[in-house]
Amino acid sequence: MFGAATFHAAMAEIVVGSMVLASLCALGCAAGSIFPNLLGARLASERMMLTMDKASIAGACLGLAFIPIAALSGSFAADNTVTNGLLYNKFVYTGLATGFWAAFVIGRIRLGPGLWEHRSLSALQGVTAAMAILMTTMVSSIGGKLVRGESLFDIMPIWLPSDSATVLNPIVSIVLMLIGTGSLFAVLKLGPKAERIETD
């Protein structure tokens, strides 16, 4: 048998590893699309774009599937209690990371690989992936802070607020959830149907 903390560490490694692959490939696709002559046009070659696109969607799907497992095991590892702002923010950043990755995966599946041929969509997808990996690394860095007292973010210029948390009233959170659910329903069911963009 092994403890919840050990299981959580393993799950978190799967999530972070997959997401790093996904975000690097997504950023590569976006860069190849926006700057076609980058690296002697090799980044924008059809074969390279196809490979990076498939790797990014595969990595993002795998990571997204494991996020709930990692979050639940982390919750058990913390004895289902939140005693400080750092731990609270871990849940908040997990939610943000899930949102960004879900949007990345849904967008790529709905619009197809042809989205990389549209500069604006490509830029949006690249920014989404960048924000998603930033949130994911924040979550894992908070884990490092909690367990080891240090994190790679200590030596980096970026460190999002994490020591103090803004705790929303649960009623406000529920209202926001309803707004989010309604917005999703409107976008997916009531709004104009996004067409799958076929590659040339």
């Binding site: 979050a71 849940f91 908040v92 950043y93 997990t94 939610g95 943000l96 899930t98 949102g99 960004f100 879900a102 949007a103 849904i106 705790v167 929303l168 959170s173 529920i174 926001l176 959830m177 707004i179 989010g180 659910t181 917005s183 999703l184």
Partner: peptide, 10 residues
């Protein structure tokens, strides 16, 4: 709060 933010961002 995490779930609400996930839905809003998506």
């Amino acid at each position: 709060q995490g779930l609400a933010l996930a839905l809003l961002v998506t």
